[in-house]
Design a protein around this nucleic acid. Structure first.
Lengths: 197, 197
DNA sequence: GTCTATACTAGGATAGAC
DNA sequence: GTCTATCCTAGTATAGAC
């Protein structure tokens, strides 16, 4: 599958690593994740990860920035899609839930970023990402609606992060909460969110 | 201030340590926090922290459980306080915001717990705590309202955790989001939350 | 009940070869 | 562009004294 001549361009490698790192940081947290795990996940050596990003911190920062960019793009697509008969709110909500299902890591590592707001290097990046998303939201809805939207997003993130999704400790209340939070692929909840605007 | 004979009962010590640990874990995260920092914050030696709790993991678990218990108690008080002319929703919301202001650590370390849902030892504890709070909420309001309430709580946590509170990167949009999220000591938002029930 | 000393491991980062 | 070897620090946990 891989010969000893598996040299691929640095740009592509960086993207591979960022992808792997997004998963690893999302699951283990910034401090809990190791550059070695990231390397393993990306199929390369640990020193090479450090080589390409300088430090673990820098790698994490780029992961957070990439996550924000991804969310931003998904939002843009949802906003632009005015063919749909739905309102912007639900369209964005649906896009977000889709993203969640496709790539948990993005949301999880972004959350990890938020929670490190105290950190002098990471904090500013996380706050900037958060506010960029909020501001884009505000450009298509009023403050109250945007706030509720962010709140809903944070709940979704928490439910996923805490692994309540897995129904491991299955409980009818969990089901109810999920039904209410996501509806059928977001459902009532996000509908309600938009009709509040 | 402290003589060499500062022996205090273990129960009290445990509480002191839990308090310190709540702050430290809240700021640095589970993996990022060290038992040594906790020890310093509690004014004792690192090995003694380990001695009293067995492992760092166990200490963290007790921190999370304590955080949930604290929130639970604040909720009970708010629910019982039917002298107030306010609805339950806003009362609980207000109690939560009060708690936030008094002790950030509780919310932050609880959040750290949620985000470690993957962890086989911590995950179950975090999920249990989350659901206990949700269920108590459900006992005084309907599913939709309870969900929105949790969402609002997660947003509050995120705003605090990401340190947007500090206005470091001050931005008028941040102010707006805060005004909207907290109102004046929670305001409109939570009021709106309850009138949805 | 609490400390000092210490064993042991893990993990980030560097050097330098290929 | 990528690896192996390795340094060095930091951090959990244990042993054992007081």
């Amino acid at each position: 599958m891989s010969s000893s001549t598996d040299r691929i361009p640095a740009t592509e490698r960086r993207e591979q690593i960022l992808e792997a790192a997004t998963r690893v940081f999302g699951e283990q947290g910034y401090a809990g994740a190791t550059t070695d795990r990231v390397a393993k996940a990306a199929g390369i050596s640990q020193p090479y990860v450090v080589r390409l990003f300088g430090t673990k911190e820098q790698l994490f920062i780029e992961v957070v920035e990439r996550a924000c960019a991804r969310i931003g793009k998904a939002m843009e697509r949802a906003i632009a899609d005015d063919a749909s008969e739905k309102e912007v709110g639900p369209r964005i909500g649906e896009a977000y839930v889709d993203l969640v299902q496709t790539d948990r890591g993005i949301l999880l590592s972004l959350m990890q970023g938020f929670i490190l707001g105290q950190d002098p290097a990471i904090g500013p990046v996380a706050r900037k990402g958060f506010m960029t998303i909020y501001e884009r939201m505000r450009s298509v809805m009023d403050a109250e609606e945007a706030m509720r939207f962010m709140a809903q997003g944070m709940l979704i993130n928490t439910l996923i992060a805490s692994n309540l999704t897995e129904g491991i400790d299955d409980d009818d209340q969990v089901d109810e909460l999920f039904a209410c939070t996501f509806g059928d692929k977001l459902g009532l909840v996000l509908e309600g969110l938009s009709k509040a605007g």
